[in-house]
Amino acid sequence: MRASWSALHTSLIRKLNLRSSQVDFQAMRQADPELAAFGSIPALLEHQHARDGDPAARFAVIRALVMAAQSDQRYRSTAHLMVIVALWPGLDAVFWRLSRGFPDRRDDLPAEIVARIGEAILTLDLDRVTAVTATLLRNVERDIRRDMVATRVVGETLKSIADPVIEALVVETAESVEVQPQDLTDHLACLAQRDATLLRRVFLLGETQEEAGRALGLEPAAARKRYQRALAKLRSQQKAPPVLSHSGSPVGL
């Protein structure tokens, strides 16, 4: 069974409560004046999670922790964990936004978010980034959302056209009466890639023609024109008899 989001947080806190982590933090305090003001890891985390704290001071602490995590010092692993836990309120908001958008992937999100934020901490270019906290959280949510949307589109596209929901959409919209139980990709293979993607977004993601077109860089009028033209081509393809190759197998479908 996958660890729940709250259980994962508890596990991270438990690691930071180890004596070895406390020893590492004392070394970090000696190396960076931004951390010296905090006598313990819990004191630092309380400061970072306080709603009425000074944002500039919190950002400075996060930057110092990220620097420690990217260093070659023995305390880098502890600093890495501290950044994740210090960012937890923001990560919690990311988790719930993504879980609402992708409820079927909720069990995968805890590990995915922690893995992504962990990698982002180690690869962040501090010389080019000022808003460390916002950059880390925004990039993690953007990358996970992008990958999950892509996975959803691929998964739905590879569904059999016999799926009643997709079949109903295709039959009703394309006015087809003889849709065979084939891969949806086969039915769209006659279209240009952008037109096929436009139809997939409308059929499978429930986007309007304008929304799907905007995602593809099309003006609303151009998106509607492409949509209607793609449906017309689908209708003509489905009415036409299949073209056989020399081996007797259908081609072009």
Rank of each mutant, 00 (worst) to 15 (best):
Y227E: 12
D195G: 03
A223C: 06
Q193I: 08
F203I: 03
L205G: 00
L191Y: 02
Q228N: 13
H187R: 06
Q228W: 11
L188I: 11
Q209L: 03
R200T: 05
L218W: 13
T185E: 07
L191A: 00
E219H: 15
G206T: 04
R226A: 14
A189T: 09
Y227D: 08
T197F: 01
T185R: 13
K225N: 12
R226T: 00
A215K: 09
E207N: 07
T208D: 04
L204A: 00
Q193G: 04
T185Q: 07
L205Q: 11
R224Y: 12
R214V: 06
E207L: 15
T197S: 12
E219M: 15
L216N: 10
A196C: 03
L199P: 02
T197I: 05
L188T: 10
Q209M: 14
E219Q: 14
H187V: 07
A212K: 08
R201N: 06
K225Q: 15
A192L: 05
D195W: 05
A221H: 10
R214Q: 12
E210Y: 06
L205H: 09
C190Q: 09
D186S: 13
A215E: 12
E219S: 15
Q228D: 13
A189I: 05
L205A: 07
A221I: 10
A221V: 12
A215N: 04
L198F: 01
R214G: 05
L184A: 12
Q193F: 01
E210M: 06
D195N: 06
E207K: 10
L218F: 14
A212H: 12
Q209T: 12
Q228P: 00
T197R: 14
Q209C: 09
T197K: 07
L184R: 05
K225H: 15
R214F: 11
R200F: 02
Q193C: 00
L188M: 11
V202P: 03
E207M: 12
L199S: 02
A192H: 15
G217V: 10
A196W: 02
T208E: 07
E207G: 01
T208V: 02
K225E: 15
Q228I: 08
T197Q: 13
G206R: 02
L204Q: 04
